[in-house]
């Protein structure tokens, strides 16, 4: 799970971890933060199975890559296994160096081309748009969890229990709605 500091990827990985725990799996999860709060690149490795040893996943071993931002998707694409699933939020957050003119943000064609070498299963989702439509940009993480939930053997009630554990009551209903929206959205996007 990759993104930019402040996008809520850590909370999302916490929810996924909690859901896997409730579903009875062994789990290891590690967030390589760098200095996440300060707008840096963030990546979380989450491993779920009967027995998990290493917390970090090797390059080429990732089953599902979920990216909250496009540059962070391509940055970590080599981690995806051949034929793996990539769920990419269609959002560009250009780093400062792009604004200063010392580097260039990759275009969609380049991003897709990079993934094409690895897999045909690339889903671009308009998660940020959907979050704004729900009235709270911070629901992006539960929308993305809704997307990923369609690929994992964890039932919906377990997911919602995990969300309830991790999200304050005041905004819980909104996040359930966002989760359902994510499940719906992923079904209607074309495979890139």
């Amino acid at each position: 799970m990759t993104g930019v500091g402040g996008q809520g990827t850590i909370l999302a990985s916490d929810i996924l971890g909690e859901a896997a725990l409730l579903a009875g799996y062994d789990i290891k999860k590690t967030d390589t933060l760098g200095m996440a709060q300060r707008g840096g690149s963030v990546i979380s490795h989450i491993r779920i199975g009967d027995h998990v040893y290493a917390p970090l996943i090797a390059e080429g071993d990732v089953d599902i890559l979920i990216a909250f931002e496009k540059l962070e998707a391509i940055r970590w694409c080599a981690y995806l296994r051949t034929g793996g699933i990539a769920i990419i939020n269609d959002l560009a957050v250009p780093p400062l160096s792009v604004g200063l003119g010392t580097s260039r943000y990759p275009n969609d064609k380049e991003i897709l081309a990079a993934f094409k070498k690895i897999t045909g299963r690339v889903y671009f989702v308009n998660g940020t748009d959907q979050a704004h439509r729900l009235g709270d940009a911070r629901t992006l993480n539960t929308i993305m969890m809704g997307c990923i939930s369609t690929f994992l053997p964890i039932d919906i009630l377990t997911w919602k229990e995990a969300i309830a554990h991790r999200i304050p009551e005041k905004i819980r209903e909104l996040n359930f709605k966002a989760f359902d929206k994510g499940r719906e959205v992923i079904k209607h996007v074309g495979i890139g």
């Binding site: 930019v4 709060q37 840096g40 090797a58 540059l71 080599a78 780093p95 580097s103």
Partner: peptide
């Protein structure tokens, strides 16, 4: 040894942490 894709990617801008 795993094939590495790194050489085939376009040069990507870094995203260092910044002052908020």
């Amino acid at each position: 040894s795993a094939d590495t894709l790194t050489g085939t990617l376009p040069p990507l801008p870094g995203r260092p942490p910044l002052l908020c």
